[in-house]
Design a protein around this nucleic acid. Structure first.
Length: 346
DNA sequence: AACGCGGGGTC
DNA sequence: GACCCAGCGTT
């Protein structure tokens, strides 16, 4: 299609978003943090996290010097916690290897943890104005519909076609605006369900609109049955303090703090040299991940003096009145909320 | 090339 | 409940 970028930019000038928090001061640091937070996460969800993160870590060197617990604490609730670990690792590398300044080439950016092809391009385009093509969820949806690209974008053949379109369409002029514009079109007009085609600058050139097959694009991910796992979480309380265990550094909920899990509470307590005075089931619930369901049963256990329990690297007593700055899993925040709004056992 | 990785918004 | 979101790293 001719004039794609010109027409998109004309639309952007009238209708694009220009007041998002990360558009105020488009420094590489702020743009980078926003791009990482926005991976697989919606704008409205990100905004409060971004504001809080910037207030706590206003510069890359400050982020680099923070502890991982502090970074994960800021990330609690955002999900995909490897993003936070990679963000922290990259901050350290920016300080140590690049003297605190972000590199300006896609190759160097992509070599940093958590920055892939699209995120590198976004940083390049938005911060330097160098030509670089992005391909995020918005762009995939727009291009799949306009050009009738079939198949699920998770498949490499489909993904390649989308990248080819993205590269071909990205202009040399006004790349920063173009990058924002193509995302805005996807976020504001070409939304997933019930898109506003009558307000779209490409209505007359859109394959999906012309063939009345908008729902077919982009192709859907093949659905798979989610397996169900189950666990028992031990909410061990002593004097208003809750025992938490740090999860291993990688994998699911990596680096976050959660309740000890055991199907045999008595055995666990014995091993930890804890004497319980009361034990009561809390309500069971289901926590659903991308790829499986986790049925969680929580047991509230009150114990006598905790001094017996050795404090170790990956164990801490979490004071409900004076919480640590650490990353917590969703079930922990959920259960602690429930506990505090309806305190049991006095 | 396929899978692991969260939590929340939307319909 | 199904589906998906400003994707990337690992295998």
């Amino acid at each position: 299609m001719k004039n794609f970028s010109t027409r998109l930019l004309a639309w952007f000038d009238d209708h694009g978003r220009k007041d998002l928090p990360w558009q105020k001061d488009k420094s590489p640091y702020r743009v980078w943090v926003s791009e990482i937070m926005l991976q697989q996460t919606q704008v409205t969800t990100v905004i409060p996290y971004f504001e809080r993160f910037m207030a706590t870590f206003p510069r890359v060197d400050i982020l680099a010097e923070a502890t991982q617990d502090e970074v994960l604490h800021q990330w609690t609730g955002l999900g995909y916690y490897a993003r936070a670990r990679n963000l922290h690792a990259t901050a350290k590398r920016i300080v140590n290897e690049y003297n605190g300044e972000f590199p300006h080439t896609p190759q160097e950016l992509e070599a940093l943890p958590g920055i892939g092809r699209s995120t590198a391009a976004a940083i390049i385009a938005i911060c330097t104005g160098q030509r670089a093509a992005i391909l995020d969820g918005n762009v995939k949806r727009v291009l799949a519909r306009v050009f009738g690209v079939e198949g699920w974008p998770g498949q490499s053949a489909t993904l390649k076609q989308l990248w080819d379109h993205a590269e071909a369409l990205t202009p040399s002029d006004r790349v920063a605006d173009y990058t924002q514009a193509i995302m805005d079109l996807g976020a504001v007009i070409c939304v997933r369900s019930r898109p506003s085609c009558d307000r779209c600058p490409f209505q007359n050139d859109c394959h999906a609109f012309a063939t009345q097959s908008i729902k077919e694009y982009p192709g859907k991910k093949p659905k798979k049955e989610k397996p169900v796992r189950s666990t028992t979480m031990l909410v061990i309380e002593c004097d208003g303090n809750i025992l938490l265990e740090q999860r291993k550094a990688t994998g699911l909920w990596g680096g976050l703090w959660s309740f000890p899990e055991s199907d045999e509470p008595e055995t666990y307590l014995e091993a930890a040299r804890l004497d319980h005075v009361q034990m009561e089931k809390l309500s069971a619930f289901r926590h659903t991940f991308t790829h499986f369901h986790l049925d969680i049963e929580a047991i509230h256990i009150k114990v006598k003096a905790a001094s017996q329990t050795q404090a170790s690297e990956n164990l801490l007593w979490y004071d409900l009145e004076d919480p640590n700055n650490i990353g917590l899993t969703r079930p922990v925040t959920r259960i602690l909320e429930a506990l505090q709004s309806a305190p049991l056992l006095q």
